[in-house]
Amino acid sequence: MLLSRVANSIYWIGRYIERAENVNRHVLVSSEFAVELEGIFEEIAVREWESLVSSLPRTGTEAAIHGQSEIQPESILRYMVSFLVDRENPYAVVTSLGKARENARTVAESITVEVTTNLNEAHRRLSSHRTNSIKDLGVAQDIGWRTHNSILTTLGAIEHTLTRDEGWSYMKMGEAIERTQRSVLVLRTRLPNLLRWQENTEDPLYYASWRSVLRTLASLENYRQENGPRFTPDQVVRFLLFHPTTPRSVYCGVRRMIGYLNGMADSGTAAKDARRRLGRLAARLEYEQDDIMAGESTLTFMDDVLAELYHVHEAVSNPTKRR
């Protein structure tokens, strides 16, 4: 038994916690990468941050980053502070945790005390920092790691205490859509640049760049288990698109979404349409891998995936429209 209103809020809790985790991870990986490159390849260090910014909708984000006058322009610290604790930045971790918490407050009776408490604790700790009180990179990184741990603790509470009912399907659907969208966006943004190094496997930066992409998507260790220490663009893209079990691949995400849709009572037209779209996407990911990998069609395919995810989001975020 699930209220339509509650289903919608639970869906957004799943999305916002996932978004907070994804951006948090991205910020930590990018800052390490940028520190590694700073002074050697200044330009690439900056581009690393630009790739984070351009993998997110621009509304509000850029203004928030460039609006911080007290921090040196273009510095790693400026980006870290903005993406961790600046409430003006709509994609900051603190913003996403705040929104997850607001949604949780409206449906507190439908989730467990452990989830509520851990989510509040994660938000409370992060939001106790102010943008102008973080003066050095070490402090910023420490805040980033601690926040990441508290997000993972919240996810642990979700995993261990929530009933696997319809609400669970909505929460995990939100998570799967957010995560899959992130994988596609990161890959879509980084791929054109990375392909330029195709012939340059002796360059240490070549490895650093691929490592950074895979770590951003929490897939470096998973990739190594499958493909060993070598990176080729074809292998990495195939891994992130088609691998059936690594949690951040597009195929894995689409299959999860199909499962969660089946766990929803909604049988309206929009839900049927979403099932059809996801089924078709899963079939392409399984049977048309070589076509997708041929030349320019990889990028076109990723655009298709983003468009389909948008339709699925529309269908599940307005469950049964108050029948």
Binding site: M1, L3, S4, R5
Partner: peptide, 22 residues
């Protein structure tokens, strides 16, 4: 369930709650 007024509807003098399953 915790409901708000707009989650409930009255039809033929019976009260219903709007859920994802109707």
């Amino acid at each position: 369930l915790l409901v708000e007024g707009s989650d409930l509807v009255v039809e033929d003098n019976y009260v219903y709650v709007r859920t994802t399953a109707g």
